[in-house]
Design a binder for these strands. Structure first.
Lengths: 206, 206
DNA sequence: ATAAAACATTGCAGAAACTGCAAGTTCGCT
DNA sequence: AGCGAACTTGCAGTTTCTGCAATGTTTTAT
């Protein structure tokens, strides 16, 4: 059985864990979207999923973590994708490519992400924790970039490019969530990257 | 009385408040730098300054706020400075000028800022709250930038430039704190801005 | 100088976030 | 079936943070 796939084996237990985690995250988002962050307790969230509050904290270190999702998982995939891009490709392009991981993720769970961005918009303190603001994952990307460009550690370039890229992604996602028509996130990200590659020229006239 | 200066009147009360606030911030930083964030309680911080824990929360909304300093005050000055730059100056240059406010602030309280950056480096969760990560102040800057460039709200440019600028400042400050020789922060910021204005060209050879 | 208003500090009571520990259950594997 | 590992849960306890009411201290007006 389970003779297919490169993954070891999902297993009933893992599936249950994933479901519980997802259910907690979704319940948290829905409740907070309705009532506001301060008006929702961990107890209510766990209640909605029918687990004990203690279990909630087995899944998330704090209440906010249930809202922002799992950046670490995404980050790892971004790093992997980045490392897979051939070295002759310029860094900015490579980073843009790596972000396809994130874009696909958002596309796959569109509604969840809409909710999330709505909650984040109403609670700005969460924004930085969403993506590429927390240093945990940034550090990993900085290393890959540094290796790619081939500069030593005290050169500011890798950190700068990484931070700027993160900023681009953040603004693209914020904008994406704000527009009612929900344009393609990839287009917004492309636009931002183009502007950056051009040195952020002031938009004349248009 | 108090016929000098543009400010209304400092007043003994205000001075005392400022001193208490500064003392709490400094005590918090020193203690956390020594023992680590989790090993320091609000009670200990207040104890060190000889005020009640309740008073601590009259000054800071949460423990972390005592560590990251008052971004709002700085932000207002940045916005004011930005608005004061003549409109014909390109946005990036204007933003760079406005950041002199921050740079001066850091220079004025060098040691405190070193401590702060050390603490932040060890507690990455604090980084975003330090500067230009929280949306409160970013929003204000975005508005000024938008007015400067003359584009409507759904144009991504103002938000992008603001976020990228914030990223540049953040990396410059992180780098500044990491270097043992403590080079001039202004130089690091200049370097970052130059790289951005040039479209983040990959550093060849050097 | 003195009274009144304004504001700061504090203690207390309490809600909620979070953690470690010691069960109890479920699951995966043989 | 049965053993061990992993997940869940309750409980007790610490810490963060808030509202309220009492008590000062500074400022302002008289």
């Amino acid at each position: 059985m389970t003779s297919a796939g490169t993954q070891p084996a999902p297993g009933r237990r893992d599936r249950k864990k994933r479901r519980t985690r997802a259910a907690l995250a979704e319940a948290a988002l829905r409740l907070v979207a309705e009532r506001g962050l301060a008006q929702v307790t961990v107890e209510e969230i766990s209640e909605a999923v029918d687990v004990s509050p203690r279990t909630f904290f087995n899944y998330f270190a704090c209440k906010d973590d249930a809202l922002v999702g799992d950046q670490v998982e995404d980050a790892k995939r971004v790093v992997a994708r980045l490392a897979a891009v051939p070295p002759e490709v310029p860094v900015l392009t490579a980073l843009r490519t790596a972000l396809d991981e994130v874009i696909d993720e958002v596309r796959a769970e569109r509604e969840l992400w809409c909710l999330r961005m709505e909650v984040v918009a109403r609670n700005p303190a969460l924004l930085p924790r969403l993506l590429a603001g927390n240093t945990e994952m940034e550090r990993a990307i900085v290393e890959v970039v540094a290796a790619r460009v081939g500069v030593d550690a005290d050169h500011g370039y890798p950190a700068l490019v990484t931070a700027v890229t993160g900023a681009a992604l953040r603004t693209a996602m914020t904008r994406w969530a704000a527009q009612p028509e929900r344009p393609d996130l990839a287009d917004l990200v492309d636009e931002a990257f183009a502007a950056i590659a051009a040195g952020l020229p002031q938009p004349q006239g248009s």
